[in-house]
């Protein structure tokens, strides 16, 4: 199904630069950014502050995808993990720059800006974060 480009560009700050936000009432950090804090509710309205996340964290769990959707078929096998960022939020991303079998729980990783996928050979190229072992 063809998707509008707007659906992608409106998420660019989050996907390119890992911009999250912070509730200045309770200090909790969110990624992707939330309209309000689920804990402070209406008290947090207008008090959510954008923040740049460090992109550093550790692997909570992972898998190696062997059977992918059409968009990712050319990349298999690839590891994908849930990463807990040092600021707290957890995110799902591919792990690159290492062998799939080297990926382990609690491994320290850092974000890196990469191509995620492409719509055929002439279509749009989608970019975003992946993670690699911390150097």
């Amino acid at each position: 199904m063809k998707e509008s480009v707007a659906r992608f560009w409106r998420e660019i700050p989050q996907r390119y630069n890992i911009i999250g936000n912070k509730c200045t009432v309770c200090g909790r950090v969110f990624f992707p950014p939330r309209e309000s804090c689920p804990y402070c509710r209406r008290k947090s309205l207008g008090k959510m502050q954008k923040i740049q996340l460090s992109g550093k964290g550790k692997i909570v769990t992972y898998t190696i995808i062997h059977s992918a959707t059409e968009d990712f078929e050319d990349q298999v096998p690839y590891p994908i993990a849930i990463v807990e960022l040092d600021e707290g939020p957890r995110i799902t991303a591919q792990i690159v720059d290492c062998k799939p079998e080297d990926v382990k729980i609690d491994m320290r990783v850092e974000s890196t800006f990469r191509k995620i996928r492409q719509d055929g050979s002439t279509g749009a190229i989608y970019y975003g974060y992946k993670f690699r072992p911390m150097r």
């Binding site: 769990t61 898998t63 995808i65 059409e70 968009d71 690839y78 995110i91 799902t92 995620i116 989608y126």
Partner: peptide, 30 residues
């Protein structure tokens, strides 16, 4: 496979290459 993946979060899971079996696989690993 792609349709089943719509049960997952399209913007923050599937977009990055997570499949539906992949999510349960991550539960299994942990």
């Amino acid at each position: 496979t792609e349709t089943l993946a719509t049960a997952a979060d399209q913007e923050w899971e599937a977009f990055f290459g997570a499949t539906f079996p992949g999510l349960y696989a991550m539960i299994a690993t942990r």
